[in-house]
């Protein structure tokens, strides 16, 4: 029973990630793409967590943490680019 529930939730996660890929490719403006990328990172984390429950293994926990960190840094970089037009700031040139 729980196995089929996990399979079903994996299927729904895949469907939503496909929808996000559509928004990532099609999205008219940059903020929409950033949001889609951030949500994709979160959904990937959820999918891997469900997969590790399904396999009864703890080998994927590092992957979860690392994906969270990378998605956090990437989202901050992209939103900073949207806000200020530059990713890494320098003082002299402005």
């Amino acid at each position: 029973m729980i196995k089929w529930l996990l399979f079903l939730s994996l299927c729904f996660l895949t469907l939503s990630i496909l929808a996000m890929v559509y928004r990532l490719v099609k999205g008219p403006t940059t903020p929409e793409r950033v949001q889609a990328l951030d949500a994709m990172g979160t959904y990937l984390i959820a999918g891997i967590a469900i997969f590790s429950v399904l396999l009864r293994s703890t080998a994927f926990f590092e992957v979860l943490l690392l994906l969270g960190i990378l998605s956090f840094v990437g989202t901050i970089a992209l939103s900073r680019y949207i806000e200020r037009g530059v990713v890494i700031e320098r003082k002299q040139s402005d």
Binding site: E62, L66, I69, V73, A77, R80, I88, K91
Partner: peptide, 24 residues
């Protein structure tokens, strides 16, 4: 799972976060 390569990359991610927030 782990090792020198991915440990170095995670280290770099922390320093990149510092770069982003506090300037170069």
């Amino acid at each position: 799972p782990g090792g020198g390569f991915i440990g170095g990359l995670a280290f770099v991610a922390a320093i990149v976060l510092l770069f982003l927030v506090y300037g170069i």
